[in-house]
Structure formats: C-alpha cells, structure tokens
C-alpha cells in the first residue's frame, strides 16, 4: 500500500468529521482510507495542466431574487423534530461557562 495513514491523520480527520471512532474502527479506517487513496492516485496518470476544475456541468451563474420575505414564522414546524427545545429554541448543552 503506497498511502500509509498515520494515527495522527486519523485523529485529525476524526476531529474534522466529528466522529468518535473506537480503536478497532480507527485501524479499519486507516486501511480503508489508504486503499481508497491508492486507488484515487490513479488520477495522477492524467495530465490536467491548464484544465479548470469543474464544479458544475452547466455554466450557471448565481441565482438572485428580490429581497422580499415570502415565508412566515415557521418556528413551530421547525422545532417539531428537535431532540430538545425550550422557549421556542433548540436546546443544547451549555457551551460557555
């Protein structure tokens, strides 16, 4: 395997991904990611010098509209699926002391 993923990399990616992996999952993720990256490295065979990265297949522009409010207060509906709510707000654990 050409790509060897270090423990530090997996830790770091875990932070970015907001995932808490068990030791066994970490080992599996290291080998999975290494294999996938080996495979993705195939793209290096292609000369893409001067090729613009294509994020959208059509030449689309930003979609603008007049700044007019069309929706009403939908907070009741939005909160219907909240795991926890209080006083018409999402409730989360305390973040600042």
């Amino acid at each position: 395997m050409a790509n060897v993923i270090s423990d530090e990399t997996i830790e770091y990616v875990g932070i970015l991904a907001k995932l808490e992996l068990s030791d066994a999952e970490k080992e599996e993720a290291k080998s999975d990611m290494g294999r996938m990256l080996d495979y993705i490295d195939k793209l290096n065979e292609l000369d893409t010098t001067g090729v613009e990265p294509m994020s959208h297949v059509f030449p689309v522009q930003n979609v603008f509209r007049e700044d007019v409010v069309t929706n009403g207060d939908d907070s009741e509906n939005m909160l219907k699926n909240a795991p926890a709510e209080r006083d018409n707000m999402y409730e989360v654990p305390k973040t600042v002391e």
Partner: peptide, 18 residues
C-alpha cells in the same frame, strides 16, 4: 454522529473530510 451513522456512511465522511 458515531452512534447514528453506519459503517459505509462513516467511511465516506472520513474520506471526504480528508
């Protein structure tokens, strides 16, 4: 997230984050 997502979803989120 760790309890809610399955293995394949976690695999792709990890690769994507990387």
């Amino acid at each position: 997230r760790s309890e809610g997502f399955g293995a394949e979803v976690k695999r792709r989120i990890m690769l994507g984050s990387f």
